[in-house]
C-alpha cells in the first residue's frame, strides 16, 4: 500500500491494481458521487463482515479497554437479580492495572514461555507443512491416500485430540510409557516434569497444526504456474534453485498470511495448554491466554485484571504484526 494515491485509484502493480475504475458506474457526476461510485462495490462487499464484527467484537473490546482502567470485579459491577440489588462501586484507577501486570514477575515469565512456544510451534508448523506439501504435490502413487491420512489430525475435533494426547502421555496407563517399558526403557514423566511437559504440549500443538499448514501450502503450490518450473528446468536450474526462486516466492502471498495468522493463533492457543496440562505442573506451561482465563474465570471474576491481560496480549500481537508488515513490505508485499 505504499503507493496508494490520494483518491485511492492505483496501488502498486499486479493483483493489487485497483479495479474500481473498471467497475465505475456510468454517469457519475460531482466529486462525491464519483467517490462513492468508485468505491461502492468494495464497501458493499466488506460491509456485512465489518458491521457484524464491529458489533460483536468491537463492543466487548471497547468495554474491555474501559474495564481495564477500573478496579471492576464481578462483585462490584452493579446489577439487579430478582430481589438482590448490587450497587455499582467500582472506580477508575487509571493505568494501575497495566503497571501492576507488567511489574508482576509472573507476567514476564509467562510472556517468555509464550513467545518461545509460539516461535517453535509456528516454525515447525510451517516447516513440516511445507515439506509435506511439496512431497504431496508430486505425481505419486497413493497420493490421495497419504493426503487423507495426513490431514486426519485436523478432522478430529481439537478438544478430542487434546484428550487423546493426555491419555497417550499418561504416566501410568498411557501407551507411550507402556511402549517404552516394553522396549526395556524407563518411563518418561511426559506431563509431570516442567521441562518435558513443555515439549509434550509443543508436540501436541505441532501434531494439530501441521495439517492445516500443509493444506494451505498445497493450495498455494497449485497456484504456481507450471511453466515457470519448465522454463527454469530448461535453463538448467537445480531443484534447490527452483525451490528457492520459484516455489518460495510463489508461495509468499499464501505463506505470509498463514504464518501471520498462525502466529496469532498459536500465541492464543488456549485449548491445547488448558486441556493437556492445565498449565501445570505448577505454572510451568501456562501461557498468557490461559493465565488471562484463570483471572477471568476462577471464583469471583476479575473483570479489570482479565481485560488488562487481554489488551496486553492484543498490544503485543499488534506490535508483532506491525514489525512483520514492515518486513513484508521490504520484500515487496503490500497491504
Amino acid at each position: 500500500m505504499a503507493a496508494q494515491a490520494v483518491d485511492g485509484t492505483v496501488a502498486g502493480g499486479g493483483p493489487a491494481r485497483d479495479q474500481a475504475a473498471l467497475h465505475r458506474r456510468p454517469g457519475g457526476q460531482g466529486p462525491v458521487r464519483r467517490f462513492i461510485g468508485r468505491h461502492w462495490y468494495a464497501w458493499a462487499l466488506t460491509a456485512p463482515v465489518v458491521i457484524v464484527t464491529l458489533v460483536l467484537v468491537g463492543y466487548p473490546l471497547v468495554r474491555g479497554v474501559y474495564l481495564s482502567l477500573t478496579d471492576a470485579t464481578e462483585a462490584n459491577v452493579g446489577r439487579t437479580i430478582g430481589m438482590n440489588v448490587i450497587p455499582s462501586t467500582y472506580e477508575f484507577v487509571g493505568l494501575k492495572n497495566y503497571t501492576a501486570a507488567l511489574a508482576d514477575p509472573e507476567f514476564l515469565a509467562t510472556l517468555g514461555w509464550t513467545v518461545l512456544w509460539t516461535a517453535v510451534c509456528v516454525t515447525l508448523h510451517y516447516g513440516l507443512g511445507l515439506g509435506l506439501a511439496i512431497l504431496l504435490n508430486r505425481p505419486l502413487r497413493f497420493r490421495s491416500f497419504y493426503r487423507v491420512l495426513l490431514v486426519l489430525p485436523w478432522a478430529v475435533p481439537a478438544f478430542v485430540s487434546a484428550f487423546i494426547w493426555r491419555y497417550i502421555f499418561s504416566a501410568k496407563y498411557g501407551v507411550l510409557n507402556a511402549m517404552l517399558n516394553a522396549a526395556g526403557l524407563p518411563a518418561v514423566a511426559w506431563l509431570d516434569d516442567p521441562a518435558v511437559a513443555k515439549i509434550s504440549v509443543i508436540v501436541v500443538n505441532v501434531w494439530l497444526g501441521v495439517p492445516f499448514m500443509m493444506l494451505a501450502v498445497l493450495g498455494g503450490l497449485q497456484a504456481i504456474p507450471g511453466e515457470l518450473y519448465e522454463a527454469a528446468s530448461m535453463d538448467g536450474a537445480t531443484p534447490w534453485q527452483r525451490f528457492r526462486y520459484i516455489t518460495l516466492p510463489g508461495l509468499r502471498p499464501v505463506a505470509s498470511t498463514v504464518v501471520l495468522l498462525g502466529t496469532i493463533w498459536t500465541f492464543n492457543q488456549f485449548a491445547v495448554i488448558f486441556l493437556v496440562t492445565g498449565g501445570g505442573p505448577g505454572t510451568s506451561t501456562q501461557i498468557l491466554v490461559t493465565n488471562a482465563y484463570r483471572l477471568a474465570f476462577t471464583g469471583i471474576r476479575d473483570y479489570a485484571g482479565s481485560a488488562t491481560w487481554g489488551l496486553l496480549i492484543l498490544l503485543i500481537l499488534s506490535a508483532m504484526t506491525v514489525i512483520y508488515r514492515r518486513a513484508l513490505r521490504r520484500t515487496g508485499e503490500a497491504w
Binding site: M1, Q4, G8, T9, V10, A11, P15, A16, R17, D18, Q19, A20, R38, H39, Y41, A42, W43, T46, V49, V50, T53, L54, V57, P60, L61, G64, L260, L261, I264, W265, N268, F270, V289, A292, Y293, W309, G310, L311, I313, L314, L317, S318, T321, W335
Partner: peptide
C-alpha cells in the same frame, strides 16, 4: 482487488478479532 478508503482499517480489524483472547 480494491484499494478503497478504509481498506487498511478492514485488514486490521480482521486481524484484531483474532488477537483478543
Amino acid at each position: 482487488r480494491f484499494r478503497f478508503p478504509g481498506f487498511r482499517s478492514v485488514m486490521w480489524m480482521l486481524l484484531i478479532t483474532q488477537m483478543f483472547p
